[in-house]
Design a protein around this nucleic acid. Structure first.
Lengths: 341, 341
DNA sequence: ACCATTCCCGCAAACGTTTGCGTAAATATT
DNA sequence: AATATTTACGCAAACGTTTGCGGGAATGGT
């Protein structure tokens, strides 16, 4: 019950291994007659090429790596779905590394990538990874492995990236609230050492400025963990007169909704809510939440396609790009009278 | 800038490739002196073994596959986390296939596994996969690839499986409600063509029987999609006098909470709720939901360890096992007076 | 009938690593 | 001091596939 090889086929058909190999890959040197003979018996004997051997010989692995900080409830599941959908009609296979937001595990993952000779890496970095701690990522370039950053990226590097326009997305979201009369807008953001957070805060501020208003720094809060949220939010919401909340992510939005319920505050009657969201949670939640779409699935597909383009076309110019974002209006924003605040 | 190989090391140190290979793997035939000499220069020259070549020669791939129907918000993310955590201190790498609940994609994934010569497969099957449509899974056995089913399994096959005791878990959950005086318990279940659903329904019924009661078949509902839930639940909850809900999964629980809010019903004041849950959603949600723990992370670790045991010990007896479950009491169950119904 | 071309296929090397076997030198045993 | 054992390394084959090159046979052209 050994696995059947090209040699076996060659022996059975009285042909050489080279003929078998070429016949199976439709080489023009082989006659149609033998091609069909070979393919038939290969099919019949259930022959499966040994990819280890093939890629070893051809000097590439057929592997693409996805490195991400964590697989939590939001965004990443649909990102993986998107990558999987897009890789399905390519000859590549996907290997996923989860770094648990730990730069040490990120280094380890990249070592694995080099050892496996993956042909490309898509990476969303950990909190600790920045311009000064990215030596391990630069090692990919030295190993001649394409690398494309997405979502959580490091700005101003030689590596290309694919993100939404974070500043614009946040601005759009906050503007919805401003347009509906809200002025006391609590901005809930993630870890400020991530570039993505910095840019979304900028967008929050810019929205105010475009309305001729001065954003209040006290209204911007960085909630790095859920526990923190549970401590901060009740205090903020009871001591202040916020009429609305802008949440930077689904994760923070979920925590927000739970805390609002705990405080017996309803959306949108008591507090209006807008978020940057993948769309799954916001659409299923009641009431449906108005959001700026940052679709993980679409991002996953785009990142993979871009990376494969780089792999198959190594000399092409690589530059960072933005995916467009759209507003999805729903039922979480109440129009209020500006004078009432 | 070519990648450095064993041959390069051999040339530089005036040794043979075999000596280099053995030195790097601490073979006793090599003297400590040369071992350290080899290792040092290997380190210095940043030598990375070519895993393609190694595994090709050794006739194994170092790959383990995880095949799952979908990566949604619940359970699967933590399952992947568990698998990843457990695989970290093994020499294996993980490849993930998402089948989108499509048996055709499941077949395709298994073909990929065979082509890659993965050494083991962990699989949670699609809705369409059953005893009569599992020819593709049996092909794994013929290809000499270990296969371990988990979560969504096919019962009564020759393949081992790892699950919680689904019937017992459901029984435990429903019993909590019965013990607190509830008799009108709406049971929300997933697709009835999955074995996991059938068993959890059995548990629901058994709980009633152990209380000397007859379960009402009309109180068991199969909500196969979220849309269905949104149609069914409002009707059921308004036309009947349910005092409590048992949800088979986190996904259905999430949909349940949204529908309850839409109907202006509070947990636990108006409706008590118990679910089988991974624990993440139920713990973060307000109010915290009482649940029977079915931890994806723990399952992921257990499945991977079990599979590796099978791989490294092919002759060992393989039998299906259950992971124990525990009740986590929280704030979603109100004690009511039985007479009040 | 002779040469040129085209068509099909085989030979053999190569990819980087591991490993069974052989052996010279060093050490131990008697 | 002769023999037996151990130590430390090299030789060469092997894993399954692809591919450059070479060549015999068939076909085409004159």
């Amino acid at each position: 019950m050994r696995r059947i090889t090209i040699k076996d086929l060659a022996n059975m058909l009285n042909l050489s291994t080279s003929t078998i190999s070429r016949a199976l890959s439709d080489h023009p040197d082989i006659s149609e007659a033998t091609k069909s003979r070979v393919k038939e018996t290969a099919e019949h004997l259930n022959y499966r090429p040994n990819l280890q051997a093939r890629f070893f010989r051809k000097k590439h692995s057929g592997l693409i790596a996805l490195i991400l900080p964590e697989i939590n409830m939001f965004y990443n599941p649909s990102l993986i779905e998107g990558v999987n959908a897009a890789i399905a009609d390519t000859p590549y296979s996907l290997v996923i590394f989860e770094t648990n937001n730990n730069i040490k595990q990120e280094r380890e993952a990249i070592q694995q990538c080099i050892r496996w000779a993956v042909e490309g890496v898509m990476i969303s970095v950990t909190i600790g990874t920045n311009k000064y701690t990215m030596a391990h990522i630069e090692e990919l370039a030295r190993a001649n492995i394409e690398c494309l950053m997405y979502d959580r990226v490091i700005t101003n590097t030689s590596f290309p990236s694919l993100t939404i326009d974070n500043q614009l997305a946040a601005k759009k979201g906050v503007k919805i609230l401003l347009e509906n009369g809200h002025r006391n807008i609590l901005g809930i953001f993630a870890n400020p050492s991530l570039a993505i957070t910095v840019e979304r805060i900028k967008g929050y501020e810019q929205a105010f400025e475009e309305f001729g208003l001065v954003p209040n720094p006290d209204h911007v809060v960085n909630a790095m963990q859920v526990d923190l949220m549970n401590n901060i939010l009740p205090v903020l919401l009871s001591s202040n007169t916020f009429t609305s909340i802008f949440s930077m992510t689904d994760e923070l939005l979920f925590s927000t909704t739970n805390n609002l319920r705990k405080l017996n505050l309803s959306i949108p009657e008591d507090v209006s809510v807008v978020a940057i969201s993948d769309g799954i949670f916001t659409n299923q939640f009641y009431p449906r939440i108005t959001y700026i779409e940052d679709s993980g699935k679409r991002m996953g597909q785009a990142v993979l396609r871009q990376l494969i383009e780089y792999i198959q076309n190594p000399s092409m110019e690589k530059k960072s790009r933005h995916l467009p974002t759209e507003i999805v209006y729903a039922d979480s924003v109440k129009r209020i009278n500006i004078a009432n605040q």
